[in-house]
Design a binder for these strands. Structure first.
Lengths: 257, 257
DNA sequence: TATCATTGTGTCGTTAAGACACAATGATAA
DNA sequence: TTATCATTGTGTCTTAACGACACAATGATA
């Protein structure tokens, strides 16, 4: 299908596929080494940035919709995702933006489900950005990882959604284990600590960190040290997946200073 | 407007007023003395029970919708409410139920926005049930307070919504102050403790409870004791509204054993 | 006036967490 | 070959929060 036809079809018939007035926006955080980024899409023509989002199929659980969006923008499966808040400002309509978009495509349209107001549900995900080749959606010209320190202007309340998600991500470090899919199979304690420090954007005490993480029992200590490093070789660990997944559901419950 | 006309109008034209495919369900907990109840509506004809719910007006914030629903079912204003979860099971459609309802009213209808699937956002509220004269909505024959220990069969996933809300209410005791609007202007420490014990459904240590509550600074100790009680007269307290409201936003952060 | 259930206040031990010290390690440089 | 030194592994000390518990004060009732 040509681009124009795809767009026209989406605006005229999309409401036969999707629920109306409700959308899902995903705040996909990307980590690697010591960097934390977030995936943003740049709209065609307008150039403004937005969170990857989408709609809920008529016969689809909202969680599935979030996973589908993640899969379509990153290619990743089986990533832990969580709904964290509903954003329902009455001004959440992209009517003007969408009409301008259609005009640029060369389509005239008076009415569309896409012109209506959307209540949106925010989801978070945390992935390794080196394992992702970002894929823009049909409305976007680019899909890129952005440093949290230098974010571009964003559409509607997406900046607020992002900020809320980051808060939630940080709070969740106290309740949910983090690191699986983000670190190599075998990793060292300093590597895990850097992950936490990067998310929190502050330093943690090395010794107290180790004590707390060990206390959660989500790690298995391996009989192996990292080779070829200057100075003392750190021990390798790997996640104890059984305890890790239990903690994902049940929670950890410690406090990071 | 006659009942039949009101119903017919709602099913045929309601989507001009409200957002589609999204609803709000309120879990309104009621407290008094040492009892915790929840407000449920009994559907006309079918007799099954449901949480008070409703829809979001096209130009209304979702929080306002929740407050409007609370106001309409209880008459209460200015009650602290919180969204706590989105329920989006693909099977969340009341098509069969609504068609049966219409049949009982004496209306035939093939299509309606009310037959579609709804994603619903759960809200919690906690009120004094002696200050409420429950008002059924147009679909309901009765509106009653139910003990949490003896709940009737409920529509769709409303029982699950209620259980999730109760969990959230209990967890929130550690983060948000509770009691304003539920206790008299002046109250005693044992009265406040009973509120907490009733919500948690377990006993707390009297002395440790006092220590923690005092630590939050949400109370002002009055120079007055309760009169006419057998045994030692307990002191009166009242809420320090400034600190109370600050804690409502910012959180408390203690742990009840 | 004694009783007694209840309230006000304090103490003790345990645990979790923050701050910090010191020995062990192992590649690198002298 | 040996000393250096940044980094890691492990432990201790102190403080704060909290659960368990003791005891005196109160005030209507018997």
């Amino acid at each position: 299908m040509s681009f124009e036809k795809e767009i026209a079809s989406h605006f005229t018939n999309g409401h036969e596929l999707y629920l109306r007035n409700i959308s899902v926006d995903c705040v996909i955080f990307g980590f690697h080494q010591n960097e934390l980024k977030v995936l943003l899409l740049q709209a065609k023509y307008a150039g403004i940035w937005a969170l990857p989002g989408g709609f809920i199929l008529k016969d689809e659980h909202m969680d599935e919709a979030a996973k589908r969006i993640l899969k379509n923008r990153t290619g990743l499966n089986n990533i832990f995702m969580q709904q964290f808040h509903v954003f329902s400002n009455p001004g959440r309509s992209t009517k003007a933006i969408n009409q301008q978009f259609l005009k640029n495509v060369g389509i005239e349209m008076k009415e569309s489900w896409m012109f209506e107001r959307f209540v949106t549900v925010g989801y978070t995900a945390l992935v390794d950005f080196t394992k992702v080749e970002p894929i823009p959606d049909v409305f976007s010209a680019a899909s890129e990882w952005h440093h949290l320190q230098s974010l571009p202007e964003m559409i509607l309340d997406h900046r607020n959604i992002l900020d809320t998600a980051l808060q939630q991500l940080r709070t969740n470090l106290n309740y949910h284990p983090v690191g699986y899919n983000l670190l190599p199979e075998k990793f060292t304690m300093p590597e895990l600590q850097i992950l936490y420090e990067t998310i929190l954007n502050r330093k943690l005490d090395r010794r107290n960190f180790q004590r707390k993480i060990i206390g959660t029992k989500i790690l298995k200590k391996l009989d192996e040290t990292k080779k070829g490093v200057a100075h003392k070789a750190p021990n390798y660990y790997q996640f104890d997946l059984k305890n890790y997944k239990r903690a994902l559901q049940g929670g950890l419950g410690f406090q990071l200073s």
